[in-house]
Computed example of a mutant assay.
Amino acid sequence: MTAKTQAAPTPVRLPDDLKGDLQAAATQNDRSLNGEIVNRLRSTFKGKRAHSSPPALKGQQ
Protein backbone atom coordinates (compact mmCIF):
# COMPACT_ATOMS: atom_id res chain seq x y z
CA MET A 1 0.00 0.00 0.00
CA THR A 2 1.34 3.42 -0.88
CA ALA A 3 1.59 6.33 1.51
CA LYS A 4 -1.28 8.80 1.39
CA THR A 5 -0.26 11.86 -0.57
CA GLN A 6 -1.69 15.32 -0.27
CA ALA A 7 -3.88 16.42 -3.16
CA ALA A 8 -2.87 19.45 -5.16
CA PRO A 9 -4.73 22.63 -4.15
CA THR A 10 -7.89 23.44 -6.11
CA PRO A 11 -8.61 27.15 -5.81
CA VAL A 12 -12.32 27.93 -5.59
CA ARG A 13 -13.90 31.37 -5.29
CA LEU A 14 -16.72 31.44 -2.74
CA PRO A 15 -19.02 34.31 -1.86
CA ASP A 16 -18.09 35.69 1.56
CA ASP A 17 -21.42 34.69 3.13
CA LEU A 18 -21.11 31.08 1.92
CA LYS A 19 -17.52 30.86 3.11
CA GLY A 20 -18.63 32.18 6.50
CA ASP A 21 -21.40 29.59 6.72
CA LEU A 22 -18.98 26.80 5.78
CA GLN A 23 -16.40 28.01 8.31
CA ALA A 24 -19.03 28.12 11.07
CA ALA A 25 -20.17 24.59 10.20
CA ALA A 26 -16.56 23.39 10.09
CA THR A 27 -15.94 24.79 13.57
CA GLN A 28 -19.15 23.20 14.88
CA ASN A 29 -18.20 19.84 13.33
CA ASP A 30 -14.56 20.07 14.52
CA ARG A 31 -13.22 20.07 10.96
CA SER A 32 -11.06 22.32 8.84
CA LEU A 33 -12.78 24.40 6.19
CA ASN A 34 -11.38 22.03 3.57
CA GLY A 35 -12.61 19.01 5.53
CA GLU A 36 -16.10 20.49 5.75
CA ILE A 37 -16.22 21.17 2.01
CA VAL A 38 -14.94 17.67 1.15
CA ASN A 39 -17.42 16.04 3.53
CA ARG A 40 -20.34 17.96 2.06
CA LEU A 41 -19.33 17.21 -1.53
CA ARG A 42 -18.88 13.52 -0.78
CA SER A 43 -22.32 13.33 0.85
CA THR A 44 -23.80 14.99 -2.25
CA PHE A 45 -22.40 12.30 -4.52
CA LYS A 46 -22.87 9.35 -2.13
CA GLY A 47 -24.98 6.68 -3.76
CA LYS A 48 -24.83 8.19 -7.23
CA ARG A 49 -21.77 6.09 -8.09
CA ALA A 50 -23.50 2.92 -6.96
CA HIS A 51 -26.64 3.69 -8.99
CA SER A 52 -25.01 4.92 -12.16
CA SER A 53 -23.81 2.48 -14.76
CA PRO A 54 -20.41 2.88 -16.38
CA PRO A 55 -20.41 4.74 -19.69
CA ALA A 56 -20.84 2.50 -22.72
CA LEU A 57 -17.76 1.93 -24.82
CA LYS A 58 -17.92 2.81 -28.51
CA GLY A 59 -18.89 -0.17 -30.59
CA GLN A 60 -20.37 -2.08 -27.62
CA GLN A 61 -24.04 -2.27 -26.76
Rank of each mutant, 00 (worst) to 15 (best):
P54W: 14
T5E: 14
G47D: 05
T2Y: 03
D16V: 06
G35P: 01
T27N: 06
R49P: 09
P11Y: 00
G20F: 01
P9H: 04
L57G: 12
K4Q: 14
T2D: 10
R13N: 03
N34F: 03
T5P: 08
R31N: 08
K19Q: 04
V38R: 09
D30S: 07
K19L: 06
A25D: 00
M1N: 09
A3E: 15
A25Q: 01
L18P: 05
P9A: 02
S32N: 07
R40H: 04
I37E: 02
T5G: 14
R49H: 11
G20L: 03
S43E: 12
S52Q: 13
D17P: 03
T10N: 04
R31T: 08
P11D: 01
Q61L: 10
K48N: 12
V38W: 03
K48T: 14
R13Y: 06
M1V: 09
P54M: 11
K58I: 15
R13K: 07
R31L: 12
G59C: 04
V12Q: 07
A50M: 13
T5R: 15
G20E: 03
A24F: 05
S52D: 09
N29C: 00
G35A: 02
K4V: 11
T10I: 12
A24S: 08
A24N: 03
K58E: 15
L14C: 06
E36A: 01
V12M: 11
S53G: 09
D17S: 09
D16C: 02
H51L: 11
V12S: 07
S43N: 10
K4C: 09
D30I: 10
G59N: 06
A24E: 06
D17G: 05
S43F: 03
N39T: 09
L41F: 04
R40Y: 02
Q60G: 07
K46D: 15
A56S: 13
Q28L: 07
P11T: 05
A24Q: 06
R49T: 15
A8M: 08
N39M: 04
R31F: 00
R13M: 08
S43W: 01
G35K: 02
N34H: 05
A50S: 15
A24W: 03
K46Y: 13
L14Q: 04
S43R: 13
Q61E: 11
P9R: 07
M1A: 12
A24D: 04
R49S: 14
A50I: 14
H51D: 11
K58P: 14
Q60K: 13
S52T: 11
H51S: 12
F45S: 11
E36Y: 02
L14A: 05
Q23Y: 07
T10Y: 08
V38K: 07
Q6Y: 06
Q28K: 10
D30G: 01
S52P: 03
G47N: 06
R13S: 00
V38H: 04
V38Q: 06
G47I: 07
L22C: 00
P15I: 07
